[in-house]
């Protein structure tokens, strides 16, 4: 999955006499165990997002099934589908309405780069959600499979807290 190694803002805090590292770690692990995504589907990928939340794949195992319809209660924005120029301000507002800390996932090729709709003569779409949002995890696919979304959530957990649910079998 396309995670980037951007240093988390917590690492930039200058060290002081009192160390909060342990507390920070605990807080981050708490956060990553309860990503509440925003109920916000745009196109095809939203169906796979719903499929991920439903019976067979069940995002709830990782505490991430609480889809909140209000951005105030959400931590994670999954941009699932093509972002059009008409919709972009709306998505920006939704992102701004989410309280910190918040994360963004670009689900599917459209949200990554415009996908199949970036063609000559296109006037309507934004070429990827990262044109106006700080995307944390990119999940390619058209649409991505539910397993890919689950892996994306696990990657985001790792990115936020540096904590792994399981040992990486490839490294061991």
């Amino acid at each position: 999955m396309g995670t980037q190694n951007v240093p988390s803002p917590l690492e930039e805090i200058p060290s002081s006499v009192v160390q909060f590292a342990a507390a920070d770690k605990l807080i981050n692990i708490g956060r990553v165990n309860s990503f509440w995504p925003l109920t916000f589907g745009i196109a095809c990928c939203a169906i796979e997002m719903m499929a991920t939340g439903c019976a067979r794949f069940d995002m709830s195992r990782f505490g991430a099934e609480v889809f909140r319809p209000s951005p105030r209660q959400a931590d994670l924005m999954i941009v699932a589908g093509t972002v059009t120029k008409k919709m972009m301000p709306g998505i920006k507002v939704l992102y701004d309405q989410m309280p910190e800390p918040k994360w963004v996932m670009a689900l599917g090729n459209c949200a990554i780069s415009g996908g199949p709709f970036a063609f000559e003569g296109q006037y309507s779409i934004v070429l990827g959600a990262d044109e106006f949002l700080p995307v944390d995890v990119y999940i390619p696919g058209c649409p991505p499979r539910p397993e890919a979304l689950l892996q994306g959530i696990l990657d985001l957990e790792n990115k936020v807290s540096g904590w792994n649910r399981w040992k990486n079998p490839e490294k061991a």
């Binding site: 605990l26 807080i27 708490g30 956060r31 165990n33 309860s34 505490g63 931590d75 309280p99 800390p101």
Partner: peptide
């Protein structure tokens, strides 16, 4: 069983808007 504490920690450390 650790889900409620995780939710609690998350909610308490979120920005108040």
């Amino acid at each position: 069983l650790l889900q409620p504490p995780a939710d609690g920690i998350k909610l308490m450390t979120k920005q108040l808007m």
